[in-house]
Write a protein that binds this DNA or RNA. Structure first.
Lengths: 213, 213, 213, 213
DNA sequence: GATGAATGAGAATTCATTCAT
DNA sequence: GATGAATGAATTCTCATTCAT
């Protein structure tokens, strides 16, 4: 009773796992080949089921895509929100921690490939675009904006335009994600994400101009 | 003799214009709908010709796409290179001027839509990816890197990692481009590109931390 | 257990039969209309399936054609080879029997139409040409050559150039096949294959010249 | 006046030559690639004119094909007919001479490729088939039949079925023609046409069976 | 007459989706 | 629930034919 998962016969557990296996397979292929070039037959094959089975869980290709987006992109945000809520220390350190965690939890995983895809296909999926804006962009920017507001209030950062600064802070992570999944594969050897984020923050925090003595 | 262009029969002049008309139509549709969802018949129709005509000028859809990339993305780089070469004034001002010009000449035009597309489709077109890396990324980064090196030599900027800083400076423009052509259309009202670039550079140049008194 | 074939669900048995049904339909149409003029949709329709189904069994039109060639032409040779191996009697009688059987088993069937087609299309299908030469021509000529050699050894035939004689013996059957499937249909009434082969062999065996007394 | 051809300005003679140049080009390509695979643009290009020009001389592809057939196949017959009419000597020698000349004048040239093509495409061009039967087959067989009848009358050949024997005599030449233009190109090295015809006639005239006493 | 740009019907091929078993 | 054979709409690409210049 305490552990109901273990009590199911194996094939039933398998049945419960089907959607996840299909989502995982779909994620792989969508990221690898893009939406249009991904054949549902290949998704099914990779998940070890038949084409027909896929339709037992997802009405059509579009819904599968949406499910992958929902399943992949949202979870990464939770971790970052928790971190901000519980962090103690300087805002500069928090910003560093948040951005590095962000990369580690989202950027370095396959979900960053989905972000590329969402941007590419947004035009073809109006409701994905809405979902993405509300669930990902708004939540992500609120998180950063809140951090900035608090830092300014506390005098840790100078007065600044919160909205524009938020966008600025998002840019490098977004760029890393796109890099990783497009031309990056060849170039990436040279661009170390951790160092890049670190460099970006150093620059952003202290500025490029030499300090007045 | 003085005006040989005028002496051509009308349909021959037409022929000279066809490739450009087709490229323009293709650019529109590729940006609007993506590679796979763009039907060649629609491209032809928008250019005011028939399906078959398109094939007189471009071997197939892939070649049309490549031609659009070449025709669209490369030209924008020239202007920026010229500006850097001839600019007189502080490096900070030059950086501002270059980035604003970059947005005006490339970002604000349809070519920024192609950049999104190239990133999305790079995996499906290995030679487009190679072309893009060599003709766009390398040229673009060299341009910025050169500017930074000169600024550091002259003592206008503090010592910095040229490669990482270059990537950092590219990020916001790239982000603007992607924004404009994906979820942006709804959000864009709030994100003014000129103000964004300006804010980014202010932050980057002076830092977020309050100045030491 | 005793009758596993019967235990398959109906549509699976169907599946097993499909390739043959399609090959039969394709044979009909290829012979009737030639390679280029045969539309795959018509082949599918004649086999009672849809266009797409055809592609479940044959990669493309070319492969379908090759499959028809392999499926049609080769089987006819076996019968003739067996006959030669087991025949007892004079070589002249064997030659008569082989050639008449050849016509009956191959010439009079649709496969002779494919031979016409192979000759017409050989240039467009290099590997069909190779296959045809090796599997049909070489096997067929070896068969006849062997017969001739044996006949000469036994003193039943006078010494002769085996290679040239073999080609000569093939010629009339080949001609009948072509006749049947090109201009023949109108002319054929007048040219009775059995009588023609008989006449040919009489002439070939005894010569046109009057016998020396 | 006696030589009006020579008096025309060069471009006019050229104009007169156009149809012939086009027919020659079409012959080449039809023989090489078959009817359906021959593109009219290629025919025009090979003749050194534009696609449109071709339509000044031939209504469509089908008419061009027919024109090639008429222009190519018929002329070869005249020579053979003349030879028979004027030949003096034994019928056996005449037969040898006719068949060798036939090969030399028709078989060894491109027109033999057209014969292959006519047989392959006869089904698609009913009037070509009629034309071919009347102008080629009937004339050709009459020629041989006449020769045979005369030889029998004179006691040079034994009594025989003229019709069947005629077909028999045609077979090897026909086979040589087909050989040359299909699988032959690889095999041909081994099959010398002159020797083949010679061997065929020797066999046909004297028979395969050993002569009595 | 000659040209070659333009046309558009037609055929091959792909793949999301359905459904009998 | 699971399967995979079957479907047919959709799309790319070809090429005979037309026609303005």
């Amino acid at each position: 009773m305490q552990c109901p998962l273990e009590m199911k016969p194996r094939w039933e557990r398998r049945k419960d796992a089907r959607p996840q296996e299909l989502l995982a397979a779909a994620l792989d292929l969508f990221v690898e080949r893009g939406f249009a070039s991904t054949r549902l037959e290949d998704v099914a094959k990779r998940a070890g089921v038949s084409k027909g089975t896929l339709y037992l869980y997802f009405t059509n290709k579009e819904e599968l895509f949406k499910a992958v987006v929902r399943d992949t992109i949202v979870p990464a945000l939770g971790a970052a929100e928790d971190m901000i809520a519980s962090f103690e220390g300087s805002s500069a350190d928090l910003l560093r921690a948040v951005m590095q965690a962000w990369w580690a939890n989202a950027g370095a995983t396959k979900s960053s490939g989905m972000i590329k895809l969402v941007m590419a296909e947004a035009g073809n999926f109006p409701d994905i675009a809405v979902f993405y804006r509300e669930e990902v962009i708004l939540r992500g920017t609120s998180m950063i904006s809140g951090l900035l507001e608090r830092a300014v209030e506390r005098g840790e950062f100078r007065p600044l335009d919160v909205f524009l600064t938020t966008q600025t802070l998002i840019a490098p992570v977004l760029m890393l994600m796109l890099w990783k999944h497009s031309v990056g594969p060849c170039e990436m050897s040279e661009l170390d994400p951790v160092a890049f984020i670190d460099s970006f923050l150093t620059m952003t925090l202290s500025g490029l101009l030499p300090r007045a003595p």
